[in-house]
Design a protein around this nucleic acid. Structure first.
Lengths: 345, 345
DNA sequence: CTGAAAGCGCTTACAG
DNA sequence: CTGAAAGCGCTTACAG
């Protein structure tokens, strides 16, 4: 029994840190056996495993991740690179990833790239040095140096938010282009003709939505370059309002605005309210992502609901398989999207 | 000269990893000197520093953080614990912390506690094992075990978002109670009498704002327990709308609502719009934090602007001093707040 | 100002 | 199924 009640938490080393040796001594086994027992290697007898676990528990032992990483050349950390934390889309993604990876014993290390190629390079270089067990990155758009670093590291990597036909690449997402096209077609089907596409940030996924919009408009013979309102500035409600106010003045015949993100669209809706523009009668407004609050707007916002929680979960699962060298069903998972029609269209 | 153009990136060890030995060899010095040069220890000759830096640069050497942490018993990581990522307040805080710590050579490791004591304990235990150089935690409210772990670790720690008179504790924030009182007094000064306090999440800082509200209402002889609308649910626009709709029906005489957070207040504003309640004529609405979009609402939202970016910056600076064993001016920095009056009051 | 030795706390082969 | 040896890549005293 591991009841030694008054056993002082012996500290064998000068550092005063509780080490595997302490656990091994308390359990009456060698250090290696303790290590194996703790890691769940099944070459250890069940009784020993229990004894070691008990000892570790009692002493309050926490393995040193640095020593572990150094000895095994691999950590239990998964690096996740997202562009922004200020877009709730990515927060949802991160939460889902965490919820899937945490029970499996992995920690996540969040890196924020701010949509900057050089920041991504720096983050990757510095995080790869930590010998992560896996990598989760947003989209495919990055410098060749980044791609090389990932490839050379040999760390399994899953790409988030997009799909691909290249079997060498692992990804979980949906077709941004298709979703952009579908919303445009929805507006066309409602009889709108002068549909503007209002966008900010202009990251690769926004541009794919723009592609979908363009193709649908061209197919309908209604495409007009004047109706593409693009701003490289960060997305915000204020910018959404501004895009509407400035461009509607020059194009009063516009009868619908398809915003590339819900925060812009929410700003547009409020601007319409301020300017007494009737939505949807006079102007239809659509968004993208179905962010918090879109169902609270007046009128409520029609949008594309994107499955970011599922993407986070599914990508984590795929990565788990890759990290364990297990076979995976497909290299690219398409989780689709849903057009949520509300009052604004 | 470090021009050896065709020198292949030699890899001395089986792992194939580029090590300090490779850099030392390339620079023609010993490993220790290379280590010292790279870390900027000023016992190394300027010429050697340059030669080592050059070699490291050329080879693309990145120090192994695990080996570093193991050998020095300290990493270059600062752990930051925040309750949530879905509240932009904390994202702003994190960004500011990152901006201050990154140039100083520290990485940040983000931990999300979800306002759960047990999650915070687990995060702390696991992150402390990484031997962080510093710790940044939100507020003072945590279990004794958490406090003990922090104290026993010896890792310098700065508390965010609140102030304290205890000289043993390091913190940067402002008085939540005072801010809550000030907004209440602002509403009272405008002639409001039946002022409700609507809150969600009910974390310690929300309760401090409630205290401020209570004291101001009691001082005015207008306090009424019926006007404290408290929900433990997570804060959201939808909940803000719901709090207004449900409680206003029972208390039609309420002439102002002070929401503990802007997202609730934004939802309240939209609910008022839906219900054709004139704001501020019939009902004043106030929020807290001045989050994105509050200046876009109709009417624009009166709120308390909290200095989270400054808090992040200032806390990072204080932590930097502590990590370097440098003296600090004060243990508690009060950065104040600003009442931003807009149209809703 | 520079270097050879020892050690940080683990895990990976290699034996039995 | 269990253990003694060696090593992961660095830094910390200790010498010179």
């Amino acid at each position: 029994m591991a009841s030694s009640p008054s056993a002082p938490p012996r500290k064998s080393r000068a550092s005063g840190r509780l080490t595997l040796d302490d656990v091994a001594a308390a359990a009456g086994v060698s250090r290696i056996t303790a290590s194996r027992a703790l890691r769940g290697e099944r070459s250890v007898g069940a009784e020993l495993v229990a004894r070691v676990a008990q000892a570790a528990q009692t002493l309050g032992y926490v393995p040193d991740p640095a020593a572990r990483a150094l000895a095994s050349a691999r950590s239990r950390t998964v690096v996740v690179l997202v562009p922004l934390l200020s877009n709730n889309l990515f927060v949802d993604l991160l939460e889902a990833v965490h919820r899937s990876l945490h029970p499996a014993g992995y920690q996540i290390l969040i890196g924020v790239t701010h949509y900057q190629a050089d920041e991504e390079e720096a983050l990757l270089a510095s995080y790869l040095a930590h010998r992560p067990a896996g990598l989760l990155v947003t989209g495919f758009d990055r410098t060749q140096r980044c791609k090389d670093m990932i490839a050379q590291s040999g760390v399994p990597c899953v790409h988030l938010m997009e799909t691909s036909t290249d079997p060498a690449v692992h990804c979980v997402g949906f077709s941004q282009t298709q979703a952009g096209g579908a919303m445009t077609e929805h507006l066309l089907a409602q009889g709108r003709q002068r549909i503007a596409f209002a966008a900010a940030q202009l990251d690769p996924r926004v541009m794919q939505r723009l592609d979908g919009y363009r193709m649908a408009m061209q197919a309908a013979g209604l495409w007009d370059a004047e109706l593409e309102w693009l701003s490289p500035a960060p997305s915000s409600m204020a910018l959404g309002a501004q895009l509407l106010e400035q461009n509607l003045a020059r194009h009063p015949d516009v009868d619908a605005i398809f915003y590339c993100n819900d925060d812009l669209a929410q700003g547009g809706l409020l601007a319409a309210l301020r300017l007494h523009i009737a939505v949807p009668q006079q102007l239809a407004v659509a968004g993208f992502n179905d962010l918090a609050g879109s169902d609270q707007m007046l009128p409520t916002l029609t949008t594309i609901r994107t499955p970011r929680r599922q993407i986070g979960h599914s990508a984590a699962q795929m990565l788990l398989h890759l990290m364990r060298d297990e076979p995976i069903d497909t290299h690219s998972v398409d989780l689709g999207w849903e057009l949520v029609q509300r009052q604004s269209t």
